[in-house]
Design a protein around this nucleic acid. Structure first.
Length: 227
DNA sequence: AACTTAATCAACCGCAGCTAT
DNA sequence: GATAGCTGCGGTTGATTAAGT
């Protein structure tokens, strides 16, 4: 028995080696990117071992798919994408990966987060206003399925309000295709990364802050490979 | 300036399904 | 058919940052 979860999951594919958890460091990212560039992805458990990462295969897969893949687009979900998300969610419910397949470059995790943090919140607010006027609806708790079935009505009825929460007007911490290590990595991880990896940084025009973009990461990887 | 609350996102966990043995 | 391993999915949580008081 015990074929589920445990063996493959975060909790221990092996006993002998300690498994790292928590935020990925830049070093780990580079190792993973480098390894996949040379060997391809898949067979994540053995990949994690072969690459020398103290991570579960599951964790490596997640990191790659949600963050490191070169074609991942992050932040700034467009109104068109919002519309697609809402339509597909109304059709399929919480089938995030299925929905993500229709949004090139978007991950199921990002869509899920987007739904839960923006749309659900919005529906919740809309629900409060409608129920307060209608009266007897006591559920302030938003259930996903209810959200999906009501979303069409809610959004069709309140397009204007949608505009106000649209990510195009909502500031994102992360801009497209770049990840700001100062912002995304634990404080402990950053100094080591900055000293250990002399990777050219991109300078933000507006803030003047330095950050590593995806391009920087990839170019540094090529350097490491001697390309 | 200090503190609190809200918002956002990355990552973990558990479960289910598939495939190989 | 039973078992074991792996992958993928969806839900949830913790950390960090931003906004408000």
């Amino acid at each position: 028995m015990e074929k589920r979860g445990g063996s493959s999951g975060g909790s221990g594919s092996s006993v002998e080696a300690e498994v790292r958890k928590g935020p990925w460091t830049m070093e780990e990212d580079l190792i993973l990117i480098n390894y996949i560039a040379n060997h391809g992805d898949g067979v994540w458990n053995s990949l994690a071992k072969s690459a020398g990462l103290k991570r579960t295969g599951k964790s490596c897969r997640l990191r790659w798919l949600n963050y490191l893949r070169p074609d991942v687009r992050r932040g700034n979900i467009t109104p068109e994408e919002q519309l697609i998300i809402m339509e597909l969610h109304a059709k399929w419910g919480n089938r995030w990966s299925k929905i993500a397949k229709h949004l090139p470059g978007r991950t199921d995790n990002e869509i899920k987060n987007f739904w839960r943090t923006r749309i659900q919140k919005y529906i919740k607010q809309a629900d409060v206003t409608t129920t307060s006027s209608v009266g007897s609806h006591q559920s302030s708790e938003i259930n996903d399925q209810a959200a999906s079935t009501s979303s069409h009505n809610v959004f069709c009825a309140q397009d204007q309000a949608m505009e106000t929460y649209s990510p195009t007007t909502t500031s994102y911490q992360h801009t497209n295709m770049e990840f700001n290590y100062g912002g995304n990595y634990s404080a402990a991880a950053v100094p080591a990364a900055t000293t250990d990896y002399p990777i050219p940084m991109t300078v933000d025009d507006q803030t003047g802050e330095n950050y590593w973009g995806m391009d920087d990461i990839w170019s540094s990887m090529h350097l490491l490979n001697g390309n």
